[in-house]
Design a binder for these strands. Structure first.
Lengths: 236, 236
DNA sequence: CATAACACGTGATGC
DNA sequence: TGCATCACGTGTTAT
């Protein structure tokens, strides 16, 4: 505690000294105080600190300007106001997202066949998908598990295996199927998904030996089970 | 993980406490120096400025903490990092809103076919859409356009038309194809998309008369062109 | 020990 | 003239 007081007192005295020196330096354009200083390394460190701090401030302000760029309806150019508007905007987006999610879940029963294909974009970009899943989980369990109606793994030709998977068309079923096949790291030649009368027919041609046929079927079943129940110990 | 968070929080709170103590100490010192100062008015103004500046900084930092509260997954407690994460989060929300709003509008347009009297609902959707259009305009340019390699519209059976569309597989191409067919409000029997050797093969069976064959082809071409160039006058 | 991040006081500027 | 905001250089602290 006493150390702190001493430190503060030293800081206080030093502060006044510095400001005086600073003023005199600016007024008279005096000879460099640094050259007269016994410790040159400290002045170098000080200038480094100055430049570093300048960089930090610059980055902060430019980030703030970037905030102003992504947030519409910025009332004032104030720093605090910019942050405030950003906060309000984020909260507004959160409310909108909740409302829209509610509408989607309300209308998803009437979605067209093609809408299910739309979800494949989530397979492309994992970052979007992850966030989407977050919001979905926060709202409630929107996605239903994969209901497998049929799974056939057959061997044709020398090194070609064809997987036929049929399941009922539910929310995000296509996304999950994509995830399943992505997670297996297969040498896929061609893949096909067909939506028809409430069902999803999936055919995948991939390069593999005949011996891998059975183990591949087990792998697929395991991956689907793990995706249906993420808390299962089989899930990684 | 949680330990790190707690440690950081404690670090921050402790930091804030220290600075507060420091400020109070300086305040006392200033008042003492104030009584000894020959010029009372100037020092009074200076202390006023000091206090005001202190208030400003405090407000700014607390706003920043509020930002940290509304933004999930904040990697670092850095001021600049907080702002950066907020920016990224807002952009991510923009992408989500764009995607989800597209789905909603399509779903509602389909719904409007069955419910002509549902004007109240369209009014609601308009109020929501206005904000979406703001953000959508701010996004502006889209990804790569659809490159159509082949488009055939043929008539089979009595009331069945089959559309065969081949295009090069690019970013979000499959999404745009889905959007095109969704926007046309067709009576789709079954739809199929196949990815093979960098190409996207799309086959759609739909219920329509033979006379609609040519106009349907024109409609598809127009929709694709409108999607490729949203600024085109054909785009609504 | 060097670096980075912070709050601080202060002068300058626009309203 | 006040009042609010800003950028700056600095000492301190924790990593």
């Amino acid at each position: 505690m006493a150390d702190i007081d001493v430190a503060y007192k030293y800081y206080w005295e030093n502060m006044f000294l510095q400001t005086e020196q600073l003023a005199s330096y600016f007024d008279e354009s005096f000879s460099f105080h640094d050259s007269n200083s016994p410790d040159g390394a400290q002045s170098s460190a000080a200038s480094k600190n100055i430049e570093s701090e300048r960089k930090r401030r610059k980055k902060l302000t430019e980030r703030l300007h970037a905030v102003r760029a992504v947030v519409p309806n910025i009332s004032k150019m104030d720093k605090a106001s910019i942050i405030k508007d950003a906060i309000d905007y984020i909260q507004e987006l959160h409310n909108q997202e909740r409302v829209i999610q509610a509408e989607i879940s309300e209308l998803e029963s009437k979605r067209s066949i093609f809408l299910d294909f739309d979800e494949e974009r989530s397979c492309n970009s994992k970052s979007k998908r992850s966030r989407f899943e977050q919001t979905c989980d926060s709202v409630g369990s929107r996605s239903s598990p994969i209901e497998v109606l049929e799974l056939r793994v057959s061997h044709i030709g020398q090194k070609t295996i064809v997987v036929s998977l049929a399941c009922s068309k539910r929310t995000d079923t296509i996304v999950k199927i994509c995830e399943v096949f992505e997670s297996l790291n297969l040498k896929i030649i061609t893949a096909n998904i067909t939506a028809f009368s409430g069902r999803l027919l999936n055919t995948v041609f991939l390069e593999a030996n005949e011996e891998e046929k059975d183990v591949l079927k087990i792998k697929i079943q395991t991956a689907i089970a793990a995706l249906n129940d993420p808390d299962s110990p089989t899930s990684v």
